[in-house]
């Protein structure tokens, strides 16, 4: 089955981003295909390369980034949500004249159209965090 996943919950104050990661791992293990993971609202914080997790806690940003790279997943961060929360790639940082970009490896910044496209091209769309 072709599955897309939307994550909306904050990775630092809600469990949903971890649940979504576990779901994706289970889906791939079971032989399903992941068409796209779309990060919306507070979940875009997963795309920051600058978060620091306490030593005895899991770094969920790093875990997602590694997972995306390992399976070469299409991982899209909503641009409107990202800009508001200070998640910027190089081109957005230069467009808005910000001192740095912080988008972690594996993620792309794009629009809600990518989520609609995921709906059109997937057998199931599963949301985490609402």
């Amino acid at each position: 089955m072709i599955i897309s996943v939307m994550v909306t919950g904050s990775p630092v104050s809600q469990q949903s981003a971890q649940t979504a990661l576990s779901f994706c791992q289970a889906a791939l293990s079971a032989g399903h295909q992941i068409y796209r993971v779309f990060f919306y609202e507070d979940a875009v914080q997963l795309g920051s390369a600058l978060n620091v997790a306490p030593q005895d806690e899991r770094n969920l940003n790093a875990a997602w980034s590694e997972f995306i790279k390992q399976y070469q997943l299409d991982a899209v961060i909503c641009v409107a949500s990202a800009l508001k929360r200070g998640i910027l790639n190089d081109s957005e940082a230069s467009r808005y004249q910000k001192p740095a970009a912080n988008l972690a490896e594996g993620f792309d910044i794009s629009g809600l159209g990518q989520w609609v496209d995921a709906c059109l091209n997937s057998d199931r769309v599963v949301s985490f965090g609402a």
Binding site: G111, L112, G113, W115, V116, D117, C119, L120
Partner: peptide
Amino acid sequence: MVLASAVFEQ
């Protein structure tokens, strides 16, 4: 999300 879906004529 509703508006984006409508733009894509769903």
